[in-house]
Design a protein around this nucleic acid. Structure first.
Lengths: 240, 240
DNA sequence: CCCGCACATTGACCTCGGTCAACCCCTGCC
DNA sequence: GGCAGGGGTTGACCGAGGTCAATGTGCGGG
């Protein structure tokens, strides 16, 4: 599959890139990778900076290489909802549409590898395997979106918070054993973001977090660092 | 694109099928269509019958030819959320996974054209155009799911109801001019289903519907038949 | 025709989570 | 050091929507 023995043909830009292993670039042959790398560039974006505007014409796609990107939708009166979170090595962009219909914003500092829209779309026509990977990711995103619809529509505030912490723990914790009994991680989102993600207010988020802390389900240090001594107890609170 | 002049090679089963025009079967060449038609069969399902079970192994995919299918998820204590609605000629099934993770149930009487799982997956490998169409549909479903996340997370009960009626009007009304000022349609869902879709209770659904009726935004006949004299007034209530 | 059943409506009451406001804590800047 | 500003917490209060229960309505079957 990968050719690590003689990979002098792999562009320097891509050599150690996560997107080449687990992301969509893994679908490309070395020569295609070279062609794509010519037009692509890595960049950093500060937390809070807007990556894609709602109605603005999108001219590029990106891979998320590090950090967390939040996808949001906003009603005319300002009410906001986060409709997705993207972690490395997710692909960022809405193929086959000039306007994305959603906003993308860096939740943390974010590393991106960006390509012009046309380059990806041409390559997609040439390589069914690339389109296949994008399709797979979209299916996963759809599964996740539907999972969150249940959370938004039917769970209580405290179940929402527990579900959110579980989801983050599963995505972020570097010690990635899915069966581990404890977990430790930094929240990539502010209280306001968590509220926008769960359809709550910051006050309710705060209250539910202190409740979980009071019940010794979690510990919180410096507002962002979370320790979950017993994942099962947290799962119990998520109400699945 | 289509070959209507000499289409004796099109299988009888598919000749007048909507899925061949607007659905995924339009991606297939006549000979592929013949091959697929050999293993496929049309069927009717009564409203309320289960089409795909949550954890049950899925052995077939289908096209929805008529009626409405609701996709649901259920928590262990019975709370239910509808996470998607499928109308003709949508494709029904979760490719690349043996278990769908969701339930599919006929909301109304439903017409289906079903294929064995393997047939589609083999054909997908052979025809990138087929996979492309499935990808496109999945992208549309993802857009819709995210749209509903905003509704679930941030809208009030009355905005939810108005948004729901708008969505149905756009999908169902046979007089399909998107800029028409009035609309008439039958609700494909019971009050209980609407509640499960919007994250509400049947009582709240009922109350909000009577409020819309009291304010002359809609008329309702026989519990199911809805008349919207002025779509703009309904849009105003949806709070986008 | 009447009964029984499923679905829908309506009312009375209560609760969860939103609102408003005070306060805390930390960090960066003068 | 002091102060301003942003993020987070906590408390008191309130209201949208949930809960529980009674009532209404249409329909198929005996």
């Amino acid at each position: 599959m990968r050719q690590d023995v003689h990979n002098s043909s792999i562009p320097v830009l891509c050599a150690s890139c996560e997107a080449r292993h687990k992301g969509i670039c893994g679908a490309l042959e070395p020569d295609q990778l070279v062609a794509l790398a010519k037009t692509s560039y890595k960049q950093k974006a500060d937390g809070g900076s807007e990556l894609i505007g709602d109605a603005e014409r999108v001219e590029s796609y990106s891979n998320v290489l590090s950090g967390v990107v939040k996808l949001t939708k906003t009603l005319s009166d300002g009410r906001q909802q986060i409709v997705g979170l993207q972690f490395a090595p997710d692909f960022l962009g809405r193929p086959f549409r000039s306007e994305s219909g959603i906003n993308a914003e860096a939740a943390t500092e974010v590393g991106l590898c960006s390509f012009p829209k046309g380059a990806i779309e041409r390559m997609m026509k040439a390589s069914p395997e690339l389109e296949h990977r994008l399709y797979q990711q979209t299916l996963r995103e759809l599964d996740e979106a539907r999972e969150w619809m249940v959370t938004l529509g039917r769970k209580t505030a405290s179940e929402k918070i527990a579900s959110f912490l579980l989801m983050i723990a599963r995505h972020i914790d570097p010690t990635a054993d899915p069966d581990r009994t404890s977990a430790t991680f930094d929240l990539p989102l502010s209280r306001a973001d968590i509220a926008d993600f769960l359809g709550l207010t910051i006050e309710t988020v705060s209250r539910q977090l202190t409740k979980l802390r009071a019940d010794n389900v979690i510990r919180i240090e410096n507002n962002r660092h979370v320790v979950v001594p017993d994942m099962e107890r947290l799962e119990l609170r998520a109400g699945n």
